[in-house]
Design a protein around this nucleic acid. Structure first.
Lengths: 149, 149
DNA sequence: ATCTTTATTAGTAATCATTCCTATTATTAT
DNA sequence: ATAATAATAGGAATGATTACTAATAAAGAT
């Protein structure tokens, strides 16, 4: 059973591990995975545990300090909540890029009017081909036309 | 190594299993999981395999006939691509609702201009509280105020 | 209609991200 | 400083998904 206590904890401690994990996310633009964060910190924090990374990522998410990104790849990526922004995922290389267009709060209002639900936020992800993969595709198509593949 | 052949298959066979799996998705509004589809079809298809469901969901997704929805719950939900629409997920009960506002193709164009990437589609998900959970929350807060919890 | 090719299947084992468990440690309030 | 307990390390367990393999069945060719 999920109780209020489970959802909105009132006492968090400020551990070195949690600080470092948030640090990594704040100072990273690559939307790292839990394992990537673990391997990065493990070098200095010799006895860091992978479970600790996962637990803290969950807690930081609960506290609203980070986002979890799910992309159908079988694992999550994480992103520090600094300024709100959108994401682009290249369907070919799977890289993630931040899209810097101002958050459209009016979308929330619109959906709130239509549904009557309380809308708190939205997540907008664009899919397509990044510059590099666009070029690769073009080159590849040329090769196919010329029977080189 | 990922080759062209891996990505864009040219010959698909039309099996009963694949038809039925797509059928379930087309005739369902509940965004089912792989396991839910498996258990539903297993009743009639006595020796259906869970692996077959997963394989076909991947193939149907490759063919662009269905979407995979990832919500950070540890498992995927699937949705037939009929008319394009957006989604709402209740942060409390985790139910998914379709949001019927016309697809905003202009967002793709905008991001295409900003980034130079080729934008093919976007996914827009709203988060908040559905009607039912809105009520529950209100009642809950009242109880907390009155020291009943 | 039969033959051939090979995509697909059922069944099961394996993988891998994530969560759970427990004795120990470290943070915070008193 | 002490007490209370949140958090940790390490390892085991879970559970969704994928991989493997011999047998089957679409779909085109004869």
């Amino acid at each position: 059973m999920i109780t209020n206590k489970d959802k909105d904890k009132d006492s968090y401690r400020n551990t070195k591990q949690r600080q470092k994990i948030l640090d990594v996310l704040v100072n990273s633009k690559s939307h790292p995975t839990a394992d990537w964060i673990y391997r990065k910190l493990k070098k200095k924090f010799r006895n860091l545990s992978l479970g600790t990374v996962y637990r803290n990522l969950r807690i930081l998410k609960e506290k609203g300090q980070i986002w979890e990104l799910n992309l159908g790849t079988g694992f999550s990526r994480f992103d520090a909540v600094s300024h709100s922004h959108y994401h682009f995922i290249c369907s070919s290389c799977q890289n993630i890029y931040d899209i810097k267009i101002p958050p459209m709060k009016e979308l929330d209002d619109r959906v709130m009017q239509i549904t009557g639900f309380r809308i708190l936020s939205h997540r907008l992800v664009f899919f397509g081909l990044c510059d590099l993969c666009k070029l690769k595709k073009k080159k590849n198509n040329r090769n196919i036309r010329n029977n080189k593949v």
